[in-house]
């Protein structure tokens, strides 16, 4: 799966989970940009991404990502 497809899949999750957010979803999007993106919602985001892309994250990976672009890159790496 290429970067564009991964980002499109992540955008769907973001739009569903953070339904108050109507700004752009770009690789630079980070938790600080989205009011509803707190630590518990971050866990939900990661588990939804695991299901969507058939990957599994470690706890350190879940808490260590700076933005959506890093998440997309991690998914791509895990998919090989």
């Amino acid at each position: 799966m290429d970067d564009a497809a991964i980002l499109a899949g992540l955008e769907e999750i973001i739009r569903e989970l953070f339904d108050d957010y109507d700004g752009p979803v770009t690789p630079a999007l980070a938790a600080a940009d989205v009011e509803q993106w707190d630590s518990l919602a971050n866990v939900q985001l990661m588990v939804l991404a695991e299901r969507t892309f058939a990957v599994r994250f470690t706890t350190a990976e879940i808490s260590g990502l700076a933005n959506l672009g890093e998440l997309a890159a991690l998914i791509r790496a895990k998919q090989g």
């Binding site: 630590s39 518990l40 866990v43 939900q44 990661m46 588990v47 695991e50 706890t59 879940i62 808490s63």
Partner: peptide, 14 residues
């Protein structure tokens, strides 16, 4: 505690 709860949250969501 916040870290412990996040661990449980991850299990719960999965």
């Amino acid at each position: 505690l916040a870290g412990a709860v996040l661990e449980e949250e991850l299990f719960f969501r999965r």
